[in-house]
Amino acid sequence: MKKSLAIVLMGVLLLLSACGGGSKETSGEKKEKEVKIGITQIVEHPSLDAAREGFIAALKDAGYEEGKNLKLDYQNAQGDMNTNLSIAQKLVSDKNDLILAIATPSAQAVLKNTKEIPVLFTAITDPVGAQLVKSIEKPGGNSTGTSDTHPDAIKNTIAAIKKFVPNAKKVGIIYNNGEPNSVVNVKNAKKAIEAEGLEAVETTITAGSEVKQAAESLVGRVDVLYIPKDNTVVAALESVITVANAKDIPTFVGEGDSVKRGAFASYGLNYHDLGYSTGKMAVEILKGKKPSEIPVGFPEKLELVINKKAAAEEGITLTEDLIKDAKIVGE
């Protein structure tokens, strides 16, 4: 009886062992390692959002997809510098395989906290001046990415002021002088304004809540407004547009997404494409390439974007000749 029971138990154990082994074999191939990518973005606005979406699209096209082999941790500082620093520290301590930093403050905060994790940046005005890389061609260190500074963007946008508002003399500029990218943009804009025989009138802000008041302070003092690629102001762009429309002040901006939101015109770039280019860099890094081996990328093309509704609101008469080469929105 005991011998028979022992035989039965051995049979059960063998059966269980076989079932266990079978489950491993039928579970399919060895699971692909999950890639962890942290994303930090300084503030929410359409251009930066589009860059992030383009980045994720490039990863997906290369076979990296959330829920399968990719884990994304997206954090937004909503313009708060203390939050921005905390996000950077968290993404580094979580030991992500790669971190994407969208806009200059985000990239600077991450690089203060890691020299080991590969860092990609996008929507950056001056990567060298912001000390994110040693040079454009040879970044060095653990970071590289894409800049949104096309050499002709500001110059062409300022030249468009003379084209669409020929009687303009003074150009109002609103920006946050605490953003290094804005300081560079405004410096370049002032050079272009002076080259066109115009005068720049600056007003600075420190928070989005001050933007509308800044716009109102320029009423009666300027003929047009120019809003650079300033994250704080662009995040509160509707405040500027409300004043501009009420007072018939044509508003030129630093990127095309702001035209879609109601500003009049810009020579802009496609931020989704910029983010997509950054995503392709991420794929290279995940496959073994070092950030120091990848030169910083730039937008390949610009397009004149005009908002027809804004033109009517801000007192600009458009002719077929004026808009023949433009992309028209707001119809």
Score class of each variant (00 low, 15 high):
Lys3Met: 12
Met10Phe: 13
Leu14Gly: 15
Leu16His: 04
Leu16Phe: 13
Cys19Lys: 05
Cys19Trp: 15
Gly20Ile: 08
Glu25Gly: 00
Lys30Pro: 05
Glu32Gln: 10
Leu48Asp: 11
Asp49His: 11
Ala50Phe: 14
Phe55Asn: 02
Ala57Pro: 00
Leu59His: 09
Glu66Phe: 05
Gly67Ala: 05
Gln78Asp: 10
Gly79Cys: 08
Asp80Leu: 08
Thr83Ile: 08
Ala88Gly: 12
Val92Phe: 10
Asn96Met: 10
Asn96His: 11
Asp97His: 09
Thr104Leu: 02
Leu111Ile: 11
Pro118Phe: 12
Thr122Ala: 15
Ala123Phe: 08
Thr125Asp: 05
Pro127Leu: 06
Gln131Thr: 08
Leu132Met: 06
Lys138Thr: 02
Ala153Glu: 04
Asn156Ser: 14
Phe164Cys: 11
Val165Ile: 09
Lys169Arg: 00
Tyr175Trp: 01
Asn181Gln: 02
Val183Phe: 03
Leu198Cys: 01
Glu199Val: 03
Thr206Ile: 10
Thr206Arg: 10
Ala214Thr: 04
Val224Glu: 06
Ile227Glu: 08
Pro228Lys: 00
Ala236Glu: 01
Ser239Pro: 13
Val243Ser: 05
Arg261Thr: 12
Ser266Met: 13
Ser266Thr: 13
Tyr267Val: 07
Gly268His: 15
Gly275Trp: 14
Tyr276Gly: 00
Ser292Lys: 10
Val296Asp: 04
Gly297Ile: 02
Lys301Asp: 06
Leu304His: 11
Leu304Ser: 11
Val305His: 09
Ala310Trp: 10
Glu313Ile: 03
Gly315Glu: 02
Ile316Asn: 15
Thr319Arg: 06
Ala326Lys: 13
